[in-house]
Design a protein around this nucleic acid. Structure first.
Lengths: 109, 109
DNA sequence: ATGATTTATCGTAATATTACGATGTTAAAT
DNA sequence: ATTTAACATCGTAATATTACGATAAATCAT
């Protein structure tokens, strides 16, 4: 028990759920908003900005990178993170495809 | 440790993360798609359709209800579930507001 | 070379999630 | 009044997530 039964769902359902899961944490939302707001690729500032430990921020960045929504570029001794515009748009498009499935017919309620 | 530090984030960030979290499970995606696909408010069928235990489905339905995206109406001895059109649209709008923040300027990457 | 800075990774404690059997609860059917 | 059907809830085992200190790795400054 306790293990999500991915094998009984479609690839699409698993993929969409995974995208939602990566975004399902306020720190990761905050990280994305901060990167966007700075119009630049900040990195260590996030630790000071958010008040979470460096290890924690690094872990969140790793998860965001795992779906490609951000990219990290090494610049000297620091790493510059930025949004991957294409992935960002693709995720938005996928969410909208899901939400546009909606039909206006309800047999009850 | 292990507890999300909600107090250090904005209400908006916490709310958005919560919405993503509720949708971050393939069973809940599948439930929503099934309800939409049937253009009706099914209930116990989900147990047979998805192959998860009745208690498990009931728990997922409870979570979906918690953000109002579905509604349950008692009809005799069964409960008919359907999408709440307004909440559905509101969530889609909130996601799009988030995704439309994107700026095209990247100082690195 | 040494020390400082920045980030990643490891290990782990605290907490949350997922799944399900067992057990209630309610309403229709007999 | 029983029985049956459909759900919800409780309790709990298995697993996942979150957070952080400690430590490693890489690079810059001295």
């Amino acid at each position: 028990m306790g293990l999500t039964k991915s094998e009984i769902f479609t690839e699409e359902q698993n993929r969409l759920a995974l995208l939602f899961k990566i975004l399902a944490h306020p720190a990761r939302i905050a990280i994305l908003q901060y990167i966007i707001g700075q119009k630049a690729c900040i990195c260590n500032d996030l630790v000071e900005e958010l008040g979470l430990a460096q290890a924690t921020i690094s872990q969140h960045l790793k998860e965001l990178k795992s779906i490609g929504i951000i990219q990290g570029t090494i610049e000297g001794k620091s790493v510059c993170y930025c949004i991957d515009e294409n992935v960002w748009k693709k995720i938005q498009a996928d969410f909208n495809i899901f939400f546009n499935q909606e039909v206006k017919v309800n047999k009850c309620c």
